[in-house]
């Protein structure tokens, strides 16, 4: 019997089809019919017209060839990027954009990590922030206006709701605006869970900076500041994308805070709406818990204090 099949092409084709369809059914078709493949987190919202336009551009430019959008449940990965990805976060992604190669960092938790201004400047020229980045520049997207009609059509195909006003507002927006809007919403349906990031770190007994005024620490702090902070806070911490660190205002309220508050803020980053010592954050300050050791953070704080004293001295003198 079995030998005959090699003389009967039609029979052979039918049997091969059946053989191919078994694995296909078990791992793909049947799961597709079940609810486990269609989860949705409650906080997840469909894309707005501007975000969807940005997502289309993300696809068009092939950002997924360098960037993934899933954080794996691995300890160091969660430390680096944030909470690991959940199945229900992607319900509106047609298709998913998880990618398969991390030439650049994962973007699953990029939303709200930085202020908008950071992204505009980074897309314009990634090498301004990271001299050795190989990410292409995307400033040219500014030149292209969005086509509200197109975006509207896309929203309709996907069945996402929108207001006419949202559509007409697109008239004044360009492709870079859209891309930034999309990037800022990625992965934001899950709370940032600052607590997880803090783990094992701010259980610090130190409330005072152990390196306060330490000359070597100030010098080390200067280098660290230039590397990690000056892009946002300015060369001399005078403020740029992020606020000035040498004035007497901390989180938009007059009156400076103590070193351990600095430490916590640098360690954990900030989050929109979070209240600390009666001061409300706007968000956009990234957490450095994964990137800097405790000593390094204290060194940076020593350096900020040093700059601040210098500034105060200047103010007094002149």
């Amino acid at each position: 019997m079995a030998g005959d099949i090699y003389k009967k092409p039609v029979m052979f084709a039918i049997v091969s089809t059946a053989v191919i369809l078994i694995g296909t059914a078990v791992t793909m078709f049947i799961p597709m019919m079940t609810a486990q493949m269609h989860p949705r987190i409650e906080a997840l919202k469909p894309f707005t017209p501007l975000q969807l336009a940005g997502r289309d551009i993300y696809q068009r430019e092939g950002c997924n060839n360098c960037h993934t959008q899933t954080v794996r449940p691995l300890r160091t990965e969660v430390m680096r990027y944030g909470e690991y990805s959940k199945a229900g976060e992607f319900a509106y992604d047609r298709p998913f954009l998880w990618g398969s190669k991390r030439t650049g960092p994962d973007l699953a938790r990029i939303g709200k990590k930085y202020p908008d201004a950071w992204h505009y400047r980074h897309f314009e020229n990634p090498r301004k922030f990271f001299q050795e980045s190989n990410m292409p520049a995307y400033g040219w997207l500014k030149e292209n206006n969005l086509d509200p009609g197109d975006v509207k059509g896309h929203m309709d195909v996907l069945g996402f709701s929108y207001s006419e006003e949202e559509i007409s507002l697109l008239q004044e927006r360009n492709e870079l605006d859209a891309l930034v809007a999309y990037v800022q919403v990625i992965g934001t349906s899950i709370p940032r869970r600052r607590a997880v990031r803090t783990q094992g770190k701010t259980t610090t007994a130190e409330i005072k900076n152990p390196l306060a005024g330490n000359q070597a620490a100030i010098i080390a702090g200067r280098d660290l500041f230039e590397e990690n902070c000056s892009d946002c806070h300015g060369e001399d911490a005078e403020g740029d994308i992020g606020p000035s660190l040498i004035d007497d205002v901390f989180l938009y309220v007059e009156g400076d805070l103590a070193d351990d508050d600095y430490f916590e803020l640098i360690n954990n980053g900030t989050e929109e709406g979070h209240v600390e010592e009666g001061r409300t954050m706007k968000g956009g300050m990234p957490a450095f818990v994964g990137d800097m050791s405790r000593e390094e953070m204290w060194s940076v704080i020593s350096y900020i204090r040093y700059l601040k004293n210098k500034q105060e001295g200047k103010n007094r003198d002149g």
């Binding site: 449940p73 691995l74 300890r75 969660v78 690991y84 783990q199």
Partner: peptide
Amino acid sequence: SQAKAYEESV
């Protein structure tokens, strides 16, 4: 499960 294995590793 993957999630449990993660919790354990943390």
